[in-house]
Design a protein around this nucleic acid. Structure first.
Lengths: 234, 234
DNA sequence: ACAAAAGTGTTGAGAGTACACCCATGC
DNA sequence: GCATGGGTGTACTCTCAACACTTTTGT
């Protein structure tokens, strides 16, 4: 808390933990839900993969720090991001006490893939369903992030945050199926998404060679963050 | 994150924020949802009320720190507690950078009221619906805690965590009504709670002078944390 | 004409909601 | 016997889930 700080509080009188902001960066590639990881160069856990993140600067909000890390690794700004959980077991980092405020971000495929980050670190996309060995407690963080993402999808229509600005209903359904890992009924999906009243037709159509061209939709900017009272996909 | 720490990392090379764990302690008193606050003795915000909390010790998990604060203020252990959110705006504490991991706890009325905390600080219970002026961003934290509590009540039956070990269905319904701030239908409430299959009759009855004695229920310990697929009170 | 993907309605089952009276006890 | 709170059932509506064919385009 902040209420028991002694009157003549001097920060240097206290041991203080390091605080980092880590970002679980989700994206869809083809038929796969992927997450961006960084290869560690130094011990501990050298050569293992880890969630991107970094220290929270003293004049920087937590969400700013997370957004900065996201931008550093991907060049992307203005995407969906929310605080996930704060992990603070005393020995999760063997060197020193590190408390990690974890975020997760949803990044459209076209905004990010094949664009290496600005810094020199080695990054790569991994399937959420086939993860490498991970540093620290990062596997736990990723699993928790996936749970939360699924939960969110079922209650609030955030799926389109992983798609380009304009998308077809089939693409949106596919995104949901990949993440939830189960097939959805086409007619029921469309009815439910459209009745949620958060999408609008752009008037354009997408033709990809074969088959009937599909109507393109976008997220309605004026859709006042509608609270879903029912699960979208129970 | 923890992955970008330089190889020869020395904690003293970095400015580090202070980290506190604060606990929003909810309880029911009569017809009111109350929260336990501490009166600050020193600036900033001297004589204003604040959420109890304190620094996270270097060898202490976040949840341990929160549980310790809870025990210090109330003497209570083993109650429902969950992480709420982490607040870290740079200037939320005017003295120095303080990041607060907020928790909320549900404490049964009979376990706590009229029992002053162990330490010398002045504490008092306040109605959640009639709060005093609060220090720091603590009003925001309380409002967020109430939102989460209501949300949880609607989806998962945590209401009984605010009641004694044995309670009547009317008492449970009353608790829900107080927190949700709306009347509930008696027959529908009972059907829904009982069909959730998390309660069992104790065999005992409560008689309070007038009226027919009510069956007492307790939480089924073997109720394997059943996932609710539907909202309890849509 | 046929292959490929888009698009479209109906029916049955289960859950949610609204609603009013009898029951057991104390005084 | 009456006041007080406990306890119970039913009908209607709405949402969910399951399910198959037609339409539009490219080749």
């Amino acid at each position: 808390m902040t209420s028991n700080i002694p009157p003549n509080y001097d920060p240097s009188n206290y041991d203080r933990p390091s605080v980092t902001a880590d970002v679980v960066i989700f994206s869809l590639a083809g038929e796969d839900l992927q997450v961006l990881l960084i290869k560690r160069k130094h011990p501990p856990f050298a050569n293992m993969w880890a969630i991107p993140g970094g220290f929270v600067q003293m004049d920087e909000a937590l969400e700013e720090a997370a957004a900065r890390e996201l931008a550093e690794e991907t060049g992307v700004t203005d995407v969906y991001m929310e605080q996930l959980f704060t992990f603070g077991e005393p020995n999760r980092d063997p060197r020193t006490r590190v408390i990690t405020v974890a975020y997760f971000a949803l990044v459209p495929y076209d905004a990010i893939h094949h664009r290496p980050g600005d810094d020199a670190s080695e990054t790569a996309w991994f399937s959420m369903f086939d993860l490498p060995e991970l540093a620290f407690d990062h596997r736990e963080i990723l699993e928790y992030a996936l749970t939360r993402l699924r939960y969110k999808l079922e209650y609030t229509a955030v799926g389109f945050q992983l798609l380009p600005d304009e998308f077809t209903l089939s693409e949106l359904q596919k995104a949901y199926e990949i993440i939830l890992h189960e097939p959805l009924d086409k007619r029921n999906f469309r009815r439910k998404i459209l009745s949620a009243n958060i999408l609008e037709e752009t008037g354009n159509k997408r033709k990809l060679g074969e088959g009937r061209p599909a109507k393109l939709y976008r997220y309605r900017e004026d859709a006042v963050a509608e609270v879903k009272t029912r699960r979208l996909f129970p």
